[in-house]
Design a protein around this nucleic acid. Structure first.
Lengths: 341, 341
DNA sequence: TTGTATGCGTTATCAG
DNA sequence: CTGATAACGCATACAA
């Protein structure tokens, strides 16, 4: 009826609880006879170690918290899959906190760190919640953490991501190579670091081509498809329409294309579009979206590895960011236009 | 340096640890003076209860496991959001297990139930892993669980979902009302219960309209966009092409439309399409997709409420399924066609 | 209303 | 190689 404990197993195997524990943790230190008796008893009783007791005794949770702005965003969920893969290989559980970009919710999840439910944290949300900032100087007492994708302004925590500036440059250069001169940029939310980095890349590429790209070539968005749709309307109202646009992410690009399509403006014939992220739907979209592909699984795996190292103390808290490679994926939305559809 | 314990707080407040514990759990039973002293000490020390110790003592994890086939699928992630909302309101943590539709991974996550990391489980994966089936007869010993969206064949566990048969009928009737007679159906994976239910709805609607709908009107898919693309090729090769198709989910519909578009066949002009689920991208897609909308948040919330009830013993294990309402959302993919695009 | 004492199930230390 | 035993931090039964 009740779940078997280590004591039950010990009794059945005719050994002490210590031996049972040892058999389960380091089988090599117990005699073969004892080991077999224990394993047999474990099988017979169906014994499983009680996680709470272990955590209490060992003062660790064998779990890590992952803070993500939106689980539903496939961009994040593939990173999560990468994280999960290495976490579970290391015997760690992951606690996913969907923060909906809300600081209150972030703080809320961080209590898992304080009450010992999690041993460390992976930050995908581009910001350090206040309560964590407070611990930064402490050195110890400071929770093991790694940022992914969205770096912090101050580089105070190990980070795994891509070089967004360079990737954005790649995207814009692609449009330039296609012969476009009037290239607009649809930005993400103003306070976001990705927005700033991708904007910088856009500017750098335009400057390198000797093309002025002032405020008038910038549209404001917030990474949602809806904001892309609004930007489309702005774009339509422009006195001199661009022939191409680089969008700071794929959702906005799709929202934009969708509304343009509704107004009779076709992509790529009337406007070439490049997105960013290469989300799953990018290639199913009509037109299939030219975009920057990020190695999402790798980002997750790499970051989890770093966190593991931090947890064993193998890795320093201060550290140069690990930048993985992003690449341009050319699809239909920047194709040369034969005949208008 | 070290994290404060209940003992530290007690000492500082000049009371016993029992009083501290009581203050935190049922403030009304301790005197105001004691309570204030304790709360003051808690603030001063920054004390937080240790979850492992609580779990060990109370023999529960205050956590539930949620098994989902694919977190990245927005269909599931919105359900998750609903679950999370009520779970966190009830002070429970959710452990998300992305099973990738792999029984081995399911079993793997279920160890959380046995080792006491989770108190119950929410199943979104449409199947009962073998180790759970084994416990079904036990009554007690059987873990509290609720299925969501995908029911089990035998109704042995509380379930929250929609009436898929009726919803599919709704979709097909919409096409019939539009005047379509040759209506195909793109199925999901053969062994999936949703596939069977939606197929049944399709058949029922066709039969009610007196239209024969045999095997020749059925295309095989597996819920992925790729399989939708393959189905498009099959469809193109058909001797008598249908004028409309009902797809068992949105991803397949999009994959299908995308490939058709590549072959010069336009939706809705050459073929009307209805999907199922109303995933986030359905309305941004070109053409915007007519589909069946499921109340995803509600499904999650409702299911979590049921599980909570199961956990307090308020609810029976055996129970009629809770069926929430799904509705048809009419968009461009079944629009009347003025001029070919 | 409060305090004392016990045990939740493990693991690590320390003798043997 | 093995066993006894003391924590780990907390919540509750019981006594006061």
């Amino acid at each position: 009826m009740k779940r078997p404990t280590i004591g039950d197993v010990a009794r059945l195997a005719g050994v002490s609880t210590a031996t049972v524990s040892r058999t389960l943790h380091s089988p090599e230190v117990v005699s073969e006879t004892a080991r077999n008796a224990v394993l047999e008893a474990v099988r017979y009783t169906g014994y499983t170690q009680n996680a709470a007791a272990q955590n209490l005794r060992q003062r660790r949770a064998k779990a890590v918290l992952v803070l993500v702005p939106d689980i539903g965003n496939t961009f994040f969920s593939e990173i999560l899959a990468g994280i999960e893969r290495v976490a579970s290989a290391a015997g760690l559980t992951i606690l996913i906190g969907d923060t909906a970009n809300d600081v209150r919710r972030e703080e809320d999840f961080l209590r898992y760190l304080r009450n010992g439910r999690a041993d460390g944290v992976l930050l995908l949300n581009g910001r350090l919640p206040p309560s964590v900032i407070a611990t930064l100087d402490e050195g110890a007492g400071r929770p093991p953490m790694v940022t992914i994708s969205e770096a912090l302004d101050r580089q105070v925590v190990p980070h795994v991501g891509i070089d967004n500036v360079a990737a954005a440059e790649l995207a814009v250069r692609h449009l330039l190579d296609l012969g476009h001169r009037r290239i607009a940029h649809l930005c993400g939310p103003a306070d976001n670091i990705l927005t700033r980095q991708r904007l910088a890349g856009y500017r750098r590429a335009m400057a390198a081509a000797g093309i002025p790209a002032g405020r008038e070539s910038l549209l404001a968005g917030d990474f949602t498809a809806e904001s892309g749709g609004r930007a489309a309307l702005e774009l339509l109202a422009l006195p001199e329409r661009p022939s191409a646009i680089f969008c700071s992410n794929d959702e906005m690009a799709m929202g934009l294309i969708s509304v343009l399509h509704g107004r009779g403006m076709a992509v790529p014939c009337d406007l070439s579009v490049v997105g960013f992220d290469d989300i799953v739907f990018a290639k199913t979209y009509i037109p299939a979206l030219t975009t920057i592909h990020q190695p999402r699984s790798d980002l997750g795996e790499r970051a989890m590895h770093s966190l593991l190292a931090l947890l064993d103390g193998t890795l320093e808290q201060q550290q140069a960011p690990a930048l993985l490679e992003a690449r341009l994926v050319v699809r239909e939305s920047t194709a040369a236009c034969r005949a208008p559809r």
